[in-house]
Computed example of a mutant assay.
Amino acid sequence: MTPPPGRRRATIHDVAAEAGVSRGTVSRLLNGTSYVSSDAREAIEKAIAKVGYVQNTAARNLVTRRSRAVGFVVHEPHELFLDDPNIGAILLGANEVVSEADFQLVVLVLDSERDSQRVADYLQGGFVDGAVLVSARQHDTIAGAVERLGLPAVFIGHPPGHPTIPYVGIDNRSAARSVTEELLRTGRRRVAMVASALDRDSGSDRLAGFRDALGDRFDPRLVVDHPLYSYASGLDGARELLRRDPAIDGIFAASDAVAAGVLEALRQAGRSVPGDVGVVGFDDSAWAVRCVPALSTVRQPARLMGRRAAEIVLGQIQGAEVEPGGALLDTEVVWRASA
């Protein structure tokens, strides 16, 4: 409980006096540093409730030099952060692990270069003990700041140029190749792609996997790219592909959100799915089952990625050595009505 205005804030001395124990005994119980008898524990807990004591976390952090907070840094526009269920699942997974360890997850969203500098200053100020970095780009400002600070950190994904920061991710290239191959097995002959986020590893690897699957049949004119994994990217991208080649009969969208936009563009153009055009996405997010028809896609374990990332960061905070490289989690192709 918080004392009402004008009332003196209860201290650890008040708790000790009310409980009839020493200040050191109260301190040991609150900090969990050593054994306290059950009788003393019960007396202290009753005293805390009676005097309204609230532990001063800020003061404790000054002594321990720990914030007991982990930053969740997302390099995406604000609207995409809210619309992308994949990011939400990663966040929930990370928060589960952080909460279990009695840490706080602090969400930091980067929507501009000004945001990047502000967040870099925040990290340098010691407000978090570590960070989970989501959607990092090549030459990412925050990743560079984290390396300079030596801050415990982990990437979701694997942007190039930061070998000292471990990562958790999936094999985007192999997964994209697999889902494209499945699309080709349905008899499609003119298969295109709406690529996105080519400035980060997930986007560039998915395009590489698409090329792998097509081999000699790959036609660069049948690839359009947009900077974001968004519905608008799919809508605009599919319209452009139909303009370039009306005979397209298959489209691989770089994410489920992109695929949802593709489906709407095809509907507006009078193309049936999967009759005229087969469509596949990537993520197996909430978009996949809400689309009509439901999306064939790649399932990636977003929530598990968040959990693994948080476990790695907490391990570093507690002194574990940073293992070079990272962990790749399994994916699977999920086949539904869109192809």
Rank of each mutant, 00 (worst) to 15 (best):
T2G: 00
P3S: 10
P3L: 08
R7F: 01
D14H: 15
A16V: 09
V26A: 05
S27Q: 12
S27W: 01
L29Y: 02
N31R: 15
N31F: 04
G32R: 11
G32S: 11
V36T: 05
V36W: 03
D39W: 00
A40L: 07
A43S: 15
E45H: 01
E45K: 11
A47H: 02
A49N: 08
V51E: 07
V51Q: 09
V51H: 07
V51I: 10
Y53K: 07
Q55R: 13
N56W: 10
T57V: 14
A59H: 09
R60A: 13
T64S: 14
R68E: 12
D83A: 15
N86P: 00
L91N: 01
L91T: 04
L92D: 08
A94T: 02
A94W: 00
N95V: 02
E96S: 06
E100R: 15
L108W: 00
D115P: 05
D115W: 06
Q117D: 13
R118F: 09
R118Y: 11
A120Y: 05
D121S: 12
G125C: 00
G126C: 08
G126E: 09
D129N: 05
V132H: 10
V134W: 09
V134C: 13
S135L: 06
S135P: 02
H139N: 15
E147S: 12
P152I: 00
H158N: 15
G161Y: 13
G169S: 15
I170Y: 03
I170H: 00
D171I: 14
N172M: 14
N172P: 02
N172H: 15
A176S: 15
A176K: 04
R177G: 04
R177L: 09
L184C: 11
T186S: 14
R189T: 14
A192K: 03
A197F: 00
L198Y: 04
R200K: 08
F210T: 04
A213Q: 07
L214I: 09
D216N: 13
D216F: 05
R217W: 04
F218W: 13
R221M: 10
L222G: 10
D225R: 10
D225K: 07
L228S: 08
L228I: 05
S230M: 12
S233R: 08
D236F: 06
G237L: 13
R239Y: 10
R244I: 11
A247Q: 11
I248C: 02
G250L: 01
I251N: 01
I251R: 00
S255A: 13
V258G: 04
A260R: 00
E264Q: 04
A265K: 02
R267T: 08
A269S: 10
G270N: 00
G270E: 05
V273Q: 01
G275E: 11
G275P: 04
D276K: 06
D276Y: 03
G278S: 05
V279Y: 03
D284M: 07
A286S: 11
C291K: 01
A294M: 14
L295H: 04
S296N: 12
Q300P: 02
R303D: 08
M305G: 11
R308E: 15
R308S: 11
A309K: 02
E311R: 08
V313A: 00
Q316A: 12
V322C: 10
V322P: 01
G325H: 11
G326V: 14
L328P: 06
V333R: 10
R336S: 01
S338H: 03
S338I: 05
